[in-house]
Amino acid sequence: MTADFLLSRYPYVLIAVLFAIGLYGMTVKRNLMKKIIGMTIFQTSIYLFFIQGATKQGATIPVLDPELGPSAELYINPLPQVIVLTAIVVGVAITGVALSLILVLYRRYGTLDEVELLRRMRESA
């Protein structure tokens, strides 16, 4: 029964595994750079969750084929693709801002370790 459930829901299981890896990286790792890597893995799991909800059995890409005609069950859902397309570029920009923030932190305090960073910030305050 459990095996059936996992086999019929395998995309969700893989997405949940990526979700857990990203969450682990964001919360447990002490290096800020590894936290950013965890954040991008987390983002990827969300993109995959959106994209896999757009698929339809026996449908083609959402570019109109004149021979097929505009019938809704022949094309996969274009809406999640649009949302993920913009979200990927915004994710890259957000990663850039996060990297510039930790670059400033590293230049000022000389470390990226979370605990050490907080200690040095308290000392210099």
């Binding site: 996992l6 969450l23 339809k56 059995q57």
Partner: peptide, 18 residues
């Protein structure tokens, strides 16, 4: 938490369901 997420997918639609 991840197993809760997987458990929560039991009423989500199957992959590729039109």
């Amino acid at each position: 938490l991840a197993s809760f997420v997987i458990w929560g997918t039991h009423d989500l639609p199957e992959r590729g369901d039109p």
